[in-house]
Design a protein around this nucleic acid. Structure first.
Length: 773
DNA sequence: GCAAGGTC
């Protein structure tokens, strides 16, 4: 018999062919797609790897003019299935192979989407062949062999459940996206989007922002002591937070009566910190985003490292290494990496006992290195991510970190104080995973009855802090907790919110338009509480319906009809309030785009305008009545800068360039205030000021303010904050500057003239340095 | 030019 095995991806196809053929399969190209062939037990096998969902749902072309199809019509329109244009060849290969087969075995991932991926591809290929299903939970020899020895039926109900999700996501997403965009006049590139995952995620960010805004800080007081016994150390009042200032003062003044602290009970404890758990996608992203990479970037790099054979599959929920994974073999491979010494140390342990996390799934193993690598073969971000994954892997196999914890009670003027020491005795896993800062505190030797000199008693007012904003990492963790998105899609939903300018910042905050969209939907799209579309519960409700379909307790048409009815009701309410919603969003966008009030006319706002050549400038919104305009710096993000210039009263802007801390300066480049901030030094030719200028290609250079009379210019380091020194180079007369760069402790001091005779003397080293900039 | 879900 000729049997066709359909897999979810090419990697899985290769693996399955390898296992079933004992390594003897041959690769043939069918319509440009590899099909793996082998014979076994008088059967001929063809194995084909799909690429996820190669069949996609979309509305027919005639509904694609947003202005012509009212959103509510979209709700009941029938979407059509089409082949992903980039997967046409795979579909052709599937058709051709189906024609030459007698039976199909669906061997996609063992989950709801996997069921549909196989079924929809075969359906679209027009297959009439008998179908079987292989269900395996890991691509290991034993598991794959068992699954193929024990073939089952395809679960069409499960596939239908996944298909229902597609229909509902499309209908809600497309109709509400179009409604919001039409209502606010945001068409083309600037459309406003709504979706089952992205909108509740945005709502989480907005809710957080509201709670920060509503937060009322409560003051409290803490009393501390600076002490000395040989060396200096600190203690704090045992009461902790004092709610009343008078109480804190009383305690402090009683403590101040004496210069001697008497040591009371001493408690000694061994602190044990167990190694962190293996990486699943969520934890990996949380850690990667702490290194300053966005979640989407981290995922992209990880996918590249996976396809290049450096790390394992990066999309997994699993935090427990399966027993089939040879941890020792991986460590041995790391011998050829730049982390070979660390790997060797971990290998030298008598036994390898990996840590394990709470989520145990069988989809894929936790993310781990599969090959050694050196810093020189992996550049920049790729090395950062590889090193993170590898160090995490090493850490999960390393011993616990052990520390000496000391708790010393002290009596100062009858007031109880406590001093806590924490010293690492053996770093264990921390040695291999040095990303967390540890605050070690060492205390001088003391025993009960000893005394210490009181240097100072402090009493400080503090305030309770508002909740902190999400970072990309903490938000993705929160999304996982709320059931929003999947391991493969959360970073994409988040990136969308940034791309649509609904949110901004490293500490993520909503923009005006983000808040306006959520407010509009909360106010007008909450007909049915269980279908409040800004609420993460909507996903939970959908999950429930899909489970019912999978169990055969509900039918797809009923669920779709019910969902459509609700959506139509919601769109009706939205349509009735269309003008108000549109006005609110427009107002928010105007505020969001404003760089500040125009200082020349009282009515206008300065907004960023794109000129003919792609250059941007700030122009007054009252144009042509007011023609006030300012050039804006090129190649960087320009944001409103809060407040107005102390020198000229024009608004301030904030410029953000990659890898640099933001700079706030006057919007008017001719203003003395702005000029002073951009000053580089004195021009050696004419004595005028040289200021930092952004070129057309966004390169930074120093130009003379007497341009065009004086054409003196120098290239500048592209990164870092430039501080003039008032000094001139004794060799060439060019200004000497200091450059503060991120993560460097000391500034870099240099003459800005690249052709300076002194620099030539220094030879290669200086040359190299400048090339790096 | 819409969503979310797979995968590259």
């Amino acid at each position: 018999m000729r049997r066709l095995i359909v897999c979810e991806k090419s990697h899985a196809a290769r693996r399955i062919a390898l296992i079933l053929s004992n390594g003897s399969y041959k690769t043939q190209s069918v319509a440009g797609t590899p099909v793996l062939r082998f014979a076994k037990d008088s059967d001929e096998y063809s194995v084909l790897g799909l690429r996820g969902h190669i069949v996609e749902l979309d509305y027919p072309d005639e509904l694609n003019d947003w202005e012509k199809t009212p959103p509510r019509e979209l709700v009941e329109a029938e979407p059509v299935k089409g082949v992903d244009p980039s997967a046409k060849k795979i579909m052709r290969a599937l058709r051709e192979t189906v024609a030459k087969s007698d039976e199909v075995i669906v061997a996609t991932d063992y989950d709801r989407e996997g069921e549909l991926i196989g079924v929809e591809a075969l359906e679209h290929a027009g297959s009439k062949l008998p179908v079987k299903r292989a269900r395996f939970s890991a691509l290991t020899k034993a598991e794959v062999e068992r699954a193929f020895a024990d073939l089952v039926e395809v679960d069409y109900k499960l596939a239908t459940a996944a298909e229902t999700r597609q229909y509902i996501d499309l209908a809600w997403g497309a109709s509400l996206t179009r409604f919001m965009s039409l209502a606010s006049g945001q068409m083309g590139n600037d459309f406003l989007s709504v979706g089952r995952v992205q909108t509740p995620t945005l709502a989480l960010i907005v809710a957080k922002e509201r709670s920060i805004r509503e937060f009322k800080p409560i003051p409290y007081w803490v009393v501390g002591a600076d002490l000395r016994r040989g060396s200096e150390f600190k203690a704090s009042h045992s009461h902790g937070k004092f709610e009343e200032k008078t109480e804190a003062r009383g305690a402090a003044s009683r403590a101040r009566r004496t210069k001697e602290a008497v040591v009371g009970d001493i408690e000694l404890k061994e602190g044990v910190e167990y190694p962190p758990c293996p990486f699943n996608t969520t934890i990996f992203l949380a850690e990667a985003t702490k290194r300053g990479i966005t979640a989407a970037q981290a995922m992209k790099i990880a996918e590249g490292l996976y396809t290049d054979g450096y790390i394992s599959y990066p999309r997994t929920d699993n935090t427990v290494y399966p027993p089939s994974l040879s941890l020792k073999a991986i460590l041995e491979k790391l011998r050829r990496s730049d982390l070979s010494e660390e790997a060797e140390e971990v290998l030298s342990q008598e036994t390898l006992r990996p840590s394990r996390g709470r989520s145990f799934t069988t989809d894929h193993p936790p993310i781990h290195p599969v090959e050694g690598a050196t810093k020189s073969e992996l550049k920049g971000g790729r090395w950062t991510v590889y090193e993170l994954v590898t160090r995490r892997f090493l850490a999960t196999l390393a011993p616990a970190c052990r520390s000496k914890k000391t708790r010393v009670e002290l009596n100062i003027g009858e007031e109880p104080f406590v001093s806590e020491g924490d010293e690492i005795v053996s770093p264990g896993w921390r040695k291999y995973y040095p990303y967390y800062r540890v605050n070690e505190v060492s205390l001088p030797e003391m025993k009960t009855g000893d005394s210490a000199e009181v240097l100072r008693i402090t009493s400080a007012e503090k305030k309770t802090q508002p909740p902190s904003r999400f970072s990309q990492g903490t938000l993705i963790q929160e999304m996982e907790k709320m059931g929003l998105g999947t391991k493969s899609t959360r970073h994409e939903a988040l990136q969308k919110l940034f791309d649509r300018r609904f949110v901004k910042g490293q500490r993520i905050e909503p923009t005006e338009s983000g808040i306006a969209v959520i407010s509009a939907l909360e106010d007008h799209a909450r007909l049915h509480d269980e279908y409040k579309i800004t609420d993460a519960k909507m996903t939970a409700h959908l999950e429930l319906e899909m489970d019912l379909i999978a169990k055969g307790e509900r039918e797809q048409p009923d669920v779709l009809e019910e969902s459509q009815a609700m959506l139509v009701d919601i769109i009706d309410v939205l349509e009735r309030n269309k003008k108000e919603i549109g006005d609110d969003i427009r107002k928010a966008l105007k505020k969001q785009r404003s760089l500040g009030k125009c200082p020349q006319c009282d009515s206008g706002e300065l907004v960023e305008i794109r000129g003919k050549g792609g250059d941007t400038f700030a122009g007054c919104s009252s144009y042509p009545a007011c023609r006030n305009a300012y050039p804006l710096p090129r190649g960087m993000l320009v944001l409103p800068g809060e407040g107005s210039c102390e020198v000229c009263g024009a608004p301030k802007i904030k410029t953000v360039s990659k890898g640099q801390s933001p700079v706030v300066l006057c919007i008017d480049p001719k203003c003395d205030g702005a000029r002073k901030q951009r000053l580089v030094g004195k021009c050696p030719d004419c004595g005028g000021d040289m200021i930092s200028i952004q070129s057309r290609k966004a390169k930074r250079f120093a130009g003379c303010t007497n341009y065009p009379e004086c054409k003196r210019m120098y290239p500048l380091p592209q990164r870092g904050r430039i501080v003039p020194t008032e000094e001139a180079c004794d060799a060439c007369g060019a200004p000497i500057i200091k450059v503060w760069q991120a993560r460097r402790k000391a500034p870099w001091v240099l003459c800005i003239n690249m052709d300076c005779p002194k620099r030539q003397e220094k030879g290669e080293r200086a040359d190299k340095k400048s090339k790096n900039e």
